[in-house]
Simulated scan of single mutants.
Amino acid sequence: MNKSEKAGFVVQKLEEIYPDVPIPLDHHSPYTLLVAVLLSAQCTDERVNKITPALFVEADNAFDMAQVPVEEIKEIIRPCGLSPMKSKSISELSRILVDKYNGEVPDNMEALEALPGVGHKTASVVMSQAFGVPSFPVDTHIHRLIYRWGLSNGKNVQQTEKDCKRLFNEALWNKLHLQIIFFGRQYCPARGHNPHECPICSRIGRKPMFRNFDLKPANK
């Protein structure tokens, strides 16, 4: 298969396996999604979903969160890791949202990326999942699979994102990146992967992995 044929097969197979794919982080608003995605850095979605209910009981909007002491936020989110940095970012971005956006999460990449603790990937997730704007968030796990499937030779997530946007129809981006995440967890993990049993690798081949990606946990 050439690269275009591989991309078409990936889309077809993922649609067969995951015709309906849920958003993995529990949330009920753009703000709660933004906070959940920020917490998911170097943490599993499962753990984030266990922590956010307690946090959102305290505050589930920017106005209320801006009033919660940073130390209190830090204690609640401690199991997610990196709690000093994440609690400070949550507090600071909440104040900015109140001061500049009347408590609302902005629906453009530039404004999102200017918020404390919000990088390009986090902003892309919010644009995609909260506002339905075509985006293709790429983390190290999507990067690993796209490389494994021979769809990109990108040495970083930025290049892989560009390659994905060129390969796949824009209308597919928001759903496809979630399908890839779920597929990686179920069928194509970094470690213990059997390419002969994998529904995609068994058909399109498997490139040797970057060594550091093989050491990443499969579930995040």
Rank of each mutant, 00 (worst) to 15 (best):
A36R: 03
K100A: 07
V48E: 08
T140E: 12
G132N: 12
K50N: 10
G150Y: 07
D99K: 13
Y147L: 01
L176D: 07
A54Q: 15
P134F: 07
N174I: 03
H177F: 06
V21C: 11
K175W: 01
A66K: 10
E113A: 10
E170V: 12
A54C: 04
C80W: 02
K121H: 04
P30F: 08
S89Q: 05
V48K: 05
T44W: 02
D107K: 15
N102T: 07
Y31E: 06
P84A: 10
Q67I: 00
H141C: 00
S124V: 04
S94Q: 07
S4F: 06
E197K: 15
L93R: 00
F182N: 02
G8Y: 02
Q186F: 01
P22H: 13
V157N: 11
V11A: 15
L167P: 05
A41T: 10
P24F: 08
I96W: 09
L33G: 10
P53I: 12
E58W: 03
K74W: 00
L55F: 12
L97D: 02
L38A: 14
H141I: 00
E75R: 14
Q179S: 07
K220M: 11
S83F: 13
S124L: 08
F9Y: 15
V157D: 09
D139P: 06
I76Q: 01
V10Q: 01
L38K: 03
Q158P: 01
A54R: 14
A41R: 07
Y101G: 03
K6Q: 11
I76K: 07
C80I: 05
W149P: 04
V138Q: 13
C201E: 04
P137M: 05
R148P: 02
M65Y: 03
V21W: 02
P106A: 04
G154Q: 10
P30I: 05
F168C: 11
A111W: 02
R95L: 06
P195H: 08
F131V: 05
P189A: 01
N102S: 14
H28N: 14
P106W: 02
T140K: 13
K50M: 13
E5T: 14
C198G: 04
L167H: 08
V37E: 11
P24R: 14
P24M: 08
N194D: 15
Y147T: 01
K6A: 11
E5L: 14
L93H: 02
K162S: 08
D99H: 10
D214W: 02
E71K: 13
H143N: 15
G132H: 11
